[in-house]
Amino acid sequence: MIKLGNEAEIVIAHKLMQEAFEEYRFLEVPSSAINEPVDSLRNSFRNGSEKFILCYIDGNPLGSLRFKTKGQTLYFSRVSVPPYARGRGIAKSMLSWLEDYTKKEGIHKLQCKVRSSLTHNVLLYQSIGYTVTEEEMVTNPDKFPVSIVVMEKLLEQ
């Protein structure tokens, strides 16, 4: 079951993100998700700037992602599936749910940013119809430069 998260579930989404991004702790530039406090999610949820979804299987939360609307684009981030839950299609299921949600909201473009060096993530998005539209160098919240690609998917109207 995939559903919009509520305020009581913020700690669950944060825990899933921490577990999923732990493997990026020892990259040359570690993921800023590792140091992101739960209050960051709570504040963006409370002020309405960001929503999140959770994927439950047999009552267990095994995936989450965050999203927000920017004009006519739905931007998502922090797609989180911990290592022990991978290989079940959870990320693809969440992204499919997000596409349906996006269409219902009258939005027809999804976008995310992916580290260029994480080719398996880039390939995952490409396998479900996303294309690289830009390459850029950004400064992450921990003030480190990171090479990323912007990926987009246009939905049929």
Rank of each mutant, 00 (worst) to 15 (best):
I2L: 08
E9D: 06
A13I: 08
L16E: 01
L16S: 03
Q18M: 11
E19F: 07
A20G: 05
E23T: 14
Y24F: 15
P30N: 08
A33L: 14
D39C: 08
L41H: 09
R42P: 00
R42A: 10
N43Y: 08
S44R: 10
F45S: 01
R46A: 13
G48I: 11
G48M: 03
G48S: 09
G48P: 04
E50K: 13
F52A: 03
L54M: 04
Y56P: 00
D58M: 07
P61I: 08
L62I: 15
S64V: 05
K68Y: 13
K70T: 12
G71C: 06
L74A: 05
S77I: 01
Y84L: 10
R86M: 08
R86C: 12
R88V: 00
R88L: 15
A91Q: 04
S93T: 12
L95S: 04
S96Y: 09
S96C: 02
L98A: 00
T102I: 00
K104L: 14
G106W: 07
G106R: 05
I107T: 04
K109Q: 12
Q111T: 13
V114E: 06
L118I: 14
Q126P: 04
Y130M: 01
V132Y: 03
T133G: 05
T133Y: 01
E135V: 09
V146C: 03
S147K: 15
E152M: 08
Q157A: 13
